[in-house]
């Protein structure tokens, strides 16, 4: 691999970029972006405030930016089930990390192959992937595959395998490979006698870091946010992911709203209060949202690596 640095390596030192805007247009653009990201963040602030609001105040007044009375009840409620929550965080972390790794490997392999003109069947396999985007298997058949063919009921793999591949990501990956890997680099490596696998590992992958970071991010978000696989396949509380706990609370509330025949009290249904629910939202959202900068780093690194390559 060529190691010589070219003149563009001066990018991104001290946070200054010559490609960025300067002066007034930068300020205006900055403000526009700031406004939109505040609009995006605001509901989350609202969630945090509710999680600290006393229930009585919520029922009487609804949501207020500055509530009549504050309370830690929501978090106390969660603290009571800390054992479960900690275990669930563990499960979520495991499936997210392991699943994302698996996902990135399978997707980039497939995506790379169908991006290569030398691969005779690339259109066939592109279509094979794409077709699944439109004709998903139904819920019940998938359930049967996972529980009866693969026997994964109450198995952590049931939380991982069904979400490993998404055709959408493969197609994105393919597009990235076509665009960002210069043909010349690969050709010269071939002439040097490198095997396809080696070319893929040592040249293509490093060149495609932004794309891989993107797919890894998507996959991470998918695993972190998923609760549906747990609903279908998991009954053992030791294997509940975090979002499954949250969705249980939400679906129980939905259910009570729908069900007028038997009042919740008669049924003995206990619903955590809004503050507890929102505390749960905070706990299950904040870690993943704050992990985003980690992926961002690779977008930027991709840039520098890319600029070294030419």
């Amino acid at each position: 691999m060529p190691k010589k640095a070219n003149n563009s390596s001066l990018t991104l030192t001290n946070g200054y970029t010559p490609y960025g805007l300067k002066g007034i247009s930068n300020v205006i653009l900055s403000i526009m972006m700031a406004v939109f990201s505040f609009i995006c963040l605001f509901p989350f602030i609202y969630v945090i405030i509710i999680s600290f609001t006393a229930e009585e105040s919520l029922i009487r007044n609804g949501f207020q930016i500055i509530p009549d009375s504050w309370s830690l009840e929501g978090y106390k409620y969660l603290w009571k089930s800390q054992g479960q929550i900690l275990r669930s965080i563990g499960v979520t972390l495991f499936i997210t990390v392991f699943g994302t790794l698996l996902s990135v490997v399978m997707i980039s392999l497939f995506g790379y192959a169908i991006s290569r003109k030398e691969f005779k069947y690339r259109r066939l396999f592109t279509f094979l992937a794409f077709f699944t985007m439109l004709f998903g298997g139904g819920l019940v058949p998938t359930y049967i595959v996972v529980t009866q063919f693969l026997g994964l009921r109450d198995n952590i793999l049931a939380l991982i395998l069904p979400l490993v591949v998404q055709a959408f990501w493969i197609i994105i990956m393919r597009t990235f490979f076509i665009r960002s890997v210069p043909e010349a680099v690969i050709e010269s490596a071939r002439i040097d006698g490198a095997s396809e696998i080696r070319i893929f590992m040592q040249i293509v992958l490093p060149l495609s870091l932004p794309a891989i970071a993107t797919i890894a991010l998507f996959s991470t978000l998918t695993y972190w946010n998923d609760w549906f696989q747990a609903l279908l396949y998991i009954t053992d509380p030791d294997l509940y992911p975090l979002q499954a706990l949250l969705s249980k609370i939400e679906s129980n509330i939905e259910f009570l709203k729908e069900m007028k025949l038997i009042s919740g009290l008669q049924a003995g249904i206990t619903i955590p209060e809004d503050s507890a629910k929102m505390a749960m939202v905070v706990i299950s959202t904040l870690p993943i949202a704050l992990s985003y900068p980690f992926f961002q780093k690779y977008f930027v690194e991709g840039l520098t690596v890319g600029s070294v390559k030419e």
Partner: peptide
Amino acid sequence: IDWGEYDKKMTTMITA
């Protein structure tokens, strides 16, 4: 099976 999940899960299991 939890309140909010019972209907969906039972329907899936019965159909399957």
